[in-house]
Design a binder for these strands. Sequence first.
DNA 1: CGGCCCCTTGAAGACTATCAAGACTTGTGG
DNA 2: CCACAAGTCTTGATAGTCTTCAAGGGGCCG
Lengths: 218, 218
Amino acid sequence: MLPQATNPASAHAMTVPVGDAWTPLGVVTTASRNGEIFAEGDLAARVYKVMSGAVRITKLLADGRRVVTGFHLPGEFFALEAGEVHRFSAEAVADCQLLAIPRKTILARAMQDHALSQQLWSITGASLDRAQEHMMLLGRKNAVERLATFLLDMAARTGTDDRVPLPMSRQDIADFLGLTIETVSRTFTQLERDGVIALPSAREVTLKNRRRLLQLEG
Amino acid sequence: MLPQATNPASAHAMTVPVGDAWTPLGVVTTASRNGEIFAEGDLAARVYKVMSGAVRITKLLADGRRVVTGFHLPGEFFALEAGEVHRFSAEAVADCQLLAIPRKTILARAMQDHALSQQLWSITGASLDRAQEHMMLLGRKNAVERLATFLLDMAARTGTDDRVPLPMSRQDIADFLGLTIETVSRTFTQLERDGVIALPSAREVTLKNRRRLLQLEG
DNA sequence: CGGCCCCTTGAAGACTATCAAGACTTGTGG
DNA sequence: CCACAAGTCTTGATAGTCTTCAAGGGGCCG
């Protein structure tokens, strides 16, 4: 169940100016592939926005079984939680640039800026929506439906066209979909055989038949 | 998959004063067993606090497969979401008294009360935590572990001692744990046979061996 | 070119779902 | 208060999906 060894190297700070309302509040840091960004139980000192790369959020069971509760792609926030301590770990799926904003800064601003305050709530609410949608997948969908849902979601979030890059490993996908790596691989192959997708490489999917994929989504 | 027919009768408003900071903001309403409190897609006009009874939050797949994403017990808030529209349905598991607070009221207050504003965020964050914990259950736990987790959670939330009332049906539990009603029933029986719990009735469990249950939780 | 990951594929087995029937509970009406 | 009916829960037998165990293929980097 435990996947690749985690590379402890990560997160060297270096100030870089970029252009959006949040940017001036934080600093851009980097995290290298499989590098830990923070761990479950760490003090929640910062909130993050993905600038480039991809991040996975994970939780572990005592015996090592792993769940990936979500992936975060460029433009998305994570660790924007209300608690003082992180309830999950965050790791870089691929080399990342992250905007790290001190929690204190956010909270101080929110004290004086109701719009920001509401935005914080709103972003957390969006995470909750996604979490509930995912519970549906984990609780009631079969392997094909899970993968179809995943691919359509990734396409919606990243794809400009029908070419969808998959920065994460099969094991990451398996732990996200509540399946084993073997089942994920077999299901990819099945969708390819059925002409629903093409697999130019393991890390890139081409959607050949979105209509069919939507039906398969369940 | 679709369980009992839903009883449309519910939610008659009647003003009743009670004692806590939220109470003066809303009105107490009632919902009868299996009555709909609101449906997915409804305008999110109110947020709720359970005064008595129990509520289930559900989502449906197009073909009728159902997921219960959570239960809410007395003292707990629900529908405290940021969006304009409910992303899930809420139904009364048993006859309920609910404090219904108009969303507008909450938002207006939050504009002037930072503590409240933060509290909203915090409550939503707590929901997110629970959701992620539940994803772990749905994604990686087996039937025994799921039921053990559920029982310990219910005990922690309601039980004053080792007697834990279960206001919800087996079907509700099944849809919450991502199992079938038969598997839930068999797993209850198994835990009883193993002396971990006793079942004075279908709707009440007595924890006979918490230590063992904790081990089984996974 | 060789080694190491990562991914794919195959065969067997386990866990849960499905199908089916019976027991118990609860509520209603005579 | 009893009898019936409907809903709920339990149990059994069988089937199916996914997991587990095992091995081989392919790509990337030193």
